[in-house]
Amino acid sequence: MGFVNNGDLANENDNELTTPFWEACARGILVRPVCDACGTNFFTPSLVCPACQSTEWAYQPSSGLGRVYSYTTVHRGPDSTWEVPYVLAIIDMSEGWTMLSQLVITPPDEASPRDVIGLDVKVVFVPENRPPHRVLPMFTPQEAMS
């Protein structure tokens, strides 16, 4: 787990591969890579399709609809500039791909993870409140939570 993140260990940040994703978010559209050869949806973006290694893939708009696979309420952020608590979640998207994001909800009762796991959610776009000030796709319940 968690050792020094040397440059050679981290993914390239803000590169040609991922810029179109952030540009789409800035326009209020969630996109994901779809392989032209085999139709696989994948995320995070990579040079080739992880299912068939085809270089022929393109970003396509997503429905923005998904379901919470797992979540955690974070009470200690990476540094003191993060306002806690906030809710991280793994979202399974309707097209069969997955992304990490935040849920825009009141942190749930810790005793009932079942209330959040399996929750149907939709994308909302939130300005990033720290550099590089992108627009971040976050998720909110499709129906108001009881």
């Binding site: 940040n13 803000d14 995320f43 974070v74």
Partner: peptide
């Protein structure tokens, strides 16, 4: 972790 699809969410 400083990956661009992790750090923006505050994922320790």
């Amino acid at each position: 972790p400083d990956n661009e699809f992790l750090s923006c969410w505050g994922s320790i």
